[in-house]
Amino acid sequence: MAQANLPTRTTRWGVLAFAALALLVAGCKDQSSSPAPVSAASPAGSSSAPATDQWLGKWDGPEGTFLQLAGGNGRYDVTIQNLDGPRTFPGQAAGDRIEFERNGVKESLRATNGADTGMKWLSERSNCLTVRAGEGYCRD
């Protein structure tokens, strides 16, 4: 009779472990699947750093390209690696965007999803930054 209870206990623990793992995975996915809010107010007690500071770090594009954001507090070094190599431009927060000048043209980074980058390689992604249609970088 003790043997008959063993599969029930094992099954019960297996179901509980599976449910806990599923909740953990779902929680992680929800946090990383949406772009950082770009116009939300800072939480009480925190510094007044712009929401664009949440974009700091590396964002990947297709074929080895990437965007690297360094700095903070509204002032950034925007490094773009394309097929010609990396170039760095000074940038600054402008509301829900980061503005910078490249080759005499005023550009801006904005939060988008992969489809809004206009790039088929990124179309399934959800947490991206786009300079213009055909130039985007994603994290997820």
Rank of each mutant, 00 (worst) to 15 (best):
L6P: 02
P7C: 10
R9K: 05
T10W: 04
R12V: 02
R12M: 03
G14R: 09
V15M: 05
L16F: 01
F18Q: 07
F18N: 07
A19Y: 00
A19R: 01
A20M: 12
A20Q: 04
L23P: 01
L23V: 14
L23I: 13
L23N: 03
V25I: 15
A26S: 10
K29P: 00
K29L: 13
Q31S: 13
Q31V: 15
S33M: 12
S33V: 13
S34E: 15
P35M: 09
P35H: 11
A36P: 11
V38T: 15
V38A: 15
A40Y: 00
A40R: 02
S42N: 15
P43S: 05
G45D: 09
S46Q: 12
S47T: 13
A49K: 11
P50N: 06
A51F: 02
A51M: 06
T52W: 08
T52A: 11
D53I: 09
W55G: 05
W55N: 03
W55M: 05
L56F: 06
G57M: 04
K58I: 10
D60H: 13
G61N: 07
G61C: 09
P62F: 05
E63P: 00
E63I: 00
T65P: 02
T65G: 11
Q68N: 14
L69G: 08
A70P: 01
A70Y: 01
G72V: 08
G72C: 11
G72M: 08
N73E: 12
Y76T: 03
D77S: 13
V78G: 05
T79R: 05
T79Y: 00
I80V: 14
L83Y: 02
D84F: 00
D84E: 05
R87F: 00
R87M: 08
T88Y: 11
F89Q: 01
P90G: 01
G91E: 05
G91W: 06
A94S: 14
R97N: 12
I98T: 08
E99C: 01
E99R: 14
E99F: 00
F100D: 05
E101F: 02
E101M: 05
E101V: 14
R102K: 14
G104T: 08
V105Y: 01
K106S: 14
R110F: 07
A111K: 06
T112R: 08
T112A: 14
T112K: 06
D116Q: 15
D116R: 13
T117M: 09
M119S: 02
M119K: 07
M119N: 04
K120F: 08
K120P: 04
K120L: 09
W121K: 14
W121Y: 08
W121H: 11
W121A: 14
L122Q: 08
L122K: 07
S123M: 10
E124M: 10
R125N: 12
S126V: 04
N127Y: 04
C128L: 09
R132M: 03
A133W: 08
G134T: 02
E135G: 01
E135A: 10
E135S: 08
Y137I: 03
R139Q: 09
R139E: 02
D140A: 10
